[in-house]
Write a protein that binds this DNA or RNA. Structure first.
Ligand SMILES: [Mn+2]
Ligand SMILES: [Mn+2]
Ligand SMILES: [Zn+2]
Ligand SMILES: [Zn+2]
Lengths: 135, 135
DNA sequence: ATCTAGTTTATAATTGTTCTAAAGTGAAAA
DNA sequence: TTTTCACTTTAGAACAATTATAAACTAGAT
């Protein structure tokens, strides 16, 4: 992902491209593979990597803005930390509880044959499959 | 579920059947349908229902003991509260984010036709399907 | 009845997250 | 340029969920 795309991504989220936001955005989006993270882990990685320290509140704010703009999604994982995902397409996950690591599964790699109908007046918004792993 | 079963359930968990634990256990297990709850919601319901007040720490302790003994399971729901489930069999859920309500789906009501193989050396422990609802 | 390990409880501590309000910054107007 | 002002960052406070602590309190064995 190019620098110009990072700036586009920020502006399209209604975010001014400040030093901190650019740094966060580059860290999140300039990579080949999906990145799954918690705010805590992101903060640690950013602290390790960058010269300038970014306040935790700024990381929360920026991550939430990206989520609101649809550039990040939230993944549910047991425990009380919130996991985010740079893959915003409809997909599924393996979860390795040993390493607390998520692995993407492409939506096409899981086919559900039979599914119950939604209850009284409700509709199905989406279906998430979560595959727990063991050794 | 009979009183005798409640006592059995407690003893089988290595828990002495104290007044508080019996009260919690009866509230959780003496019902027809699955019960999904958070510690907060359970605490409110118990406070409303029973004469004696049970300390929050006791509720946490008891719920965790039941979970450890396999009498309760944990369900992952977006947000930072932990959800518990009296249904400990392998099953799936509808989730209505409007009402923050979980609805059980029998394991047999979902058939997965295609599933990717587990990564390097890992095995599949279980598969959880989470169906988000909308209106 | 006595003893003891297990239990309950109020409260403190910890953890993850959100809020606040003061200081900082930058693009555009004057 | 300087000024302006809305937007940002930040440290720390506040808040919410959970876990730890340690003193008072049983239940059940002796
Ligand atoms: Mn979670
Ligand atoms: Mn959760
Ligand atoms: Zn993912
Ligand atoms: Zn359930």
């Amino acid at each position: 992902m190019k620098k110009i795309d990072i700036l586009k991504k920020l502006r399209s989220s209604g975010l001014r491209p400040t030093k901190q936001r650019v740094e966060i955005a580059k860290f999140l989006f300039e990579r080949e593979k999906t990145f799954h993270f918690t705010v805590e882990s992101l903060n640690k990685l950013l602290t390790k990597k960058s010269i300038s320290k970014i306040a935790l509140a700024t990381i929360y704010n920026t991550v939430h803005a990206f989520k609101a703009a649809g550039h990040l999604s939230e993944v549910e994982v047991r425990g009380n930390k919130t996991y985010f995902d740079t893959n915003v397409s409809n997909h599924h996950h393996f979860y390795d509880s040993e390493t607390a690591e998520l692995i993407d599964i492409d939506a096409n790699d899981i086919i559900i044959q039979k599914i119950p109908k939604a209850p009284n007046g409700k509709k199905i918004k989406n279906v998430e499959v979560f595959i727990n792993l063991k050794n």
